[in-house]
């Protein structure tokens, strides 16, 4: 498979307010294939968001390379092009909505890059349909629920027809239904529209939906693998200040108590099935 993103020995150093140099990323190498769904987990301050912000050149490498769709993010001339390939969605939906009507908000991106009006109409309709918000096209965003607002924010990114969406804790402020709406929407975009997804989260139940999980600690990639591989490492995750999905934790605990269970149990159904054997 072809790589959309290629990161090689990436370092990011910034100077904090005391004048000390802080290494937020310390030699990260990572390839992300086109169409892949990658979740990034890690404690606060582990470098997740710093890594994400390199993917569309909001931050630039201090050392190493970040290549997106064949373009070096460090090259100024690529900036606008890269940002049309990689869109970002942040934690707080209220900070990402600019217009007073949903469809105008979604149209803001394509208008800014000079898409012809007729095509903007098509893009906005498609983007709203993709996130299941067509019925709300004429609504005022501030009257929507958190999950709906966040879906509008995703539609705004989709209207730029990106190859990749980077979501930085998109569900941190949402209620349970809002959270499942967002995870469902992101999965659908990935499966049906083949959009590459980089999804940062503190919720392990969300991370387990990904094809691959990257676990970060101290600015480095500490572990990576499929959800089944990562969540089998219960002790390592605890040492990193992270959790495992409940079923994986239960399987681990029961195994410690002598119950014979195979490795790789991460959801309730799998655990129940094994226990029923």
């Amino acid at each position: 498979m072809q790589n959309l993103i290629e990161i090689k020995n990436l370092e990011h150093v910034y100077t904090d307010t005391d004048g000390n140099e802080v290494k937020a990323l310390d030699g990260v190498s990572l390839d992300i294939a086109r169409g892949e769904f990658v979740a990034v987990i890690g404690a606060n301050g582990s470098g997740k968001s710093t890594l994400a912000r390199h993917l569309n050149a909001l931050l630039l490498p201090t050392a190493g390379k970040c290549i997106v769709a064949g373009m070096d993010t460090a090259d100024d001339d690529n900036l606008w092009n890269i940002r049309q390939h990689v869109g970002m969605v942040f934690q707080n939906p209220d900070n990402q909505i600019v217009a007073a009507v949903v469809e105008e908000d979604v149209a803001f991106g394509p208008e800014n890059i000079g898409v012809p009006p007729q095509e903007i109409r098509t893009r906005v309709d498609n983007a709203l349909a993709a996130v299941g918000m067509t019925d709300y096209a004429k609504h005022a965003p501030h009257l929507l629920s958190g999950g709906q607002k966040q879906r509008v924010a995703i539609a705004g990114v989709l209207a730029l027809e990106p190859d990749c969406i980077v979501l930085d804790e998109p569900t941190a402020m949402l209620d349970p239904r809002g959270r499942s709406e967002i995870v469902g929407t992101v999965k659908k975009l990935n499966r049906e529209k083949k959009i590459t997804v980089v999804y940062i989260t503190h919720y392990m139940e969300e991370a387990m939906q990904a094809d691959r999980i990257i676990a970060m600690e101290g600015g480095r990639i500490k572990m990576q693998g499929t959800p089944k591989e990562i969540f089998a490492c219960v002790e390592e995750l605890h040492a990193m200040g992270l959790e495992t999905p409940l079923a994986a934790q239960a399987a681990y605990d029961l195994r410690q108590k002598g119950v014979k269970l195979p490795q790789g149990i991460i959801d309730d159904e799998e655990l129940t099935e094994e226990l029923c054997r």
Binding site: G42, A43, N44, Q91, E169, A172, M173, H202, G241, L242, E243
Partner: peptide, 8 residues
């Protein structure tokens, strides 16, 4: 606890 990792 919004935005905090599990340990925090």
């Amino acid at each position: 606890s919004a935005g905090l990792d599990p340990r925090s």
